[in-house]
Structure formats: C-alpha cells, structure tokens
Design a protein around this nucleic acid. Structure first.
Lengths: 110, 110
DNA sequence: TATGATGTATCGGATGTCCTATAATTGTTT
DNA sequence: AAACAATTATAGGACATCCGATACATCATA
C-alpha cells in the first residue's frame, strides 16, 4: 500500500464517499475493466477497493446510464456514456466549488 | 439555495461524504455552534444539513476527542481540539493527494 | 485435461451521511 | 407568566460506501 502517492490515511474522520464520482472521472480518461479501475483507485487512495465495493458501484452507474460495458474475453470494459460525460462535468464543477477553498489553502502552505 | 456559491447539484453520482472532514476544517477557522456550522456548510454545498445530520456527526467527533464543546446560553460552541488539529492536517494531506488531480485539471480549463 | 490465475459478481454486515419528524431546553418578548 | 423563537438533540429510515466470504467463468499453463 501507499507506494505511489498516498500519505497516511486519516483515522480522524471517515474519508468515504465520492466513489461513483471518482470512477466517472477515471473512466473519462480511459475505458477500463473493473480490476483496472480498482487499481487506479488504489494508486490514488492507497487502498484497493474490493470486488464487493467496485462492482455494485459500477452496476449502479450502468443502471443510471452513465457508463456502458462491453465484454472482451474474461474482462468487462466499462466506458463513459455521453450522458455520463455531461454529468461528470456538472459533478466536477460542484466538487471544485465545494472543496476548492480547502485545496487552495493547502497548496499555499506547500 | 445556491445564492452564495454553488452550481447545480449533480444528479449523476452521489456527492455524500466527507462531512466530518468538512466540519473539522470549518472549525479550524473559527469555533462555532451547531447552527453556524450548518450555515457554513450551506454556503459551500448549497444545502443546509438538518439537525439530524449535523448533531450526530458532532457527537461522533466529540467521542473521538477531535472537538470540544462549551455551553454558552442556549448555544453549544464546538471547537477543534489539539488532537483534532493534528488529525485535520493528516486528512487535508490525504484529501489533496487523492483529489488534487481532478482539481488541477478543472482549474486549467477555467 | 487438470491446475492455477484472473476477472466478474453477489451476499451480508458495518458505518457515515442524508432526510423528516419529534421533543426538550433556553432566551426573549408580550 | 405565557407565548414564541432559537438551539440542541434523538429516533427511524434510506442509501452509498466499505469490508470479507463465496462463487463462477475464462484463459493460460503444466
């Protein structure tokens, strides 16, 4: 764990949340199968989400029409739909508006 | 709603999460009572969390020793403890490491 | 063909975040 | 004192996110 980027995981407050948002963002760069997505999340968050986390989330995103899927061999490649791309923009805007201040303050100190 | 800062709330993916983190950050700037904290969250997120959201979260943070409280009249003023301040630093570092990329890309486009 | 590795998927349980509804307490106003 | 407003707080329910356990299909290899 943690060899790529992640500092200590905080014990203080729960850092759950925004998984679907994060997945959409990852898929916006490149279509991937479930394990690849999980690996991307590990690089960023320091812990690889398990099958019980990742597949229900992908299923829900599919149900909402935000991602599509295509079976290739044993892999299922997920990709962002047009609808997903539009919604991701909205979500990014919202996210940056909500948390931007925390970011900027942190970067000033670095 | 939304008169101060917030763009459209995304329907796509759930933007729940990081409430405790956000509260710690708010308290790091200024000690406040519950309603003031809720109002700060409204300014940032566009929707004011209700009593059933805010007080359980504050109770949990108190249980963890991250915030202290002092009754002043009918208000209960919450403040960051030393422990809370330390943990907030860890959490900020983690948060920025996880989501920094999304931020930077968004700001480049603006 | 058998074995193992890889990838997908669900189940059940825990926890955090969200709501509405309800209620108790304290301070102010009439 | 009575009525009202503000603040705190809990109860109960919904849902996303997290885990470990389990299972099955596919592909490569021995």
């Amino acid at each position: 764990m943690n060899e790529e980027c992640c500092p200590e995981t905080p014990k203080c407050c729960d850092m759950r949340g925004l998984l679907s948002f994060h997945i959409l963002w990852i898929l916006s760069r490149k279509s991937m199968n479930g394990q690849e997505i999980a690996e991307e999340l590990r690089k960023r968050k320091g812990a690889k989400p398990t099958a019980g986390t990742i597949y229900p989330a992908l299923k829900e995103l599919r149900n909402k029409g935000l991602v599509g899927m295509e079976k290739i061999g044993r892999a299922t490649v997920y990709s962002l739909s047009e609808e997903g791309r539009k919604e991701l923009q909205t979500a990014c805007k919202y996210f940056c508006s909500v948390f931007g201040e925390i970011f900027h303050e942190y970067e000033e100190k670095s």
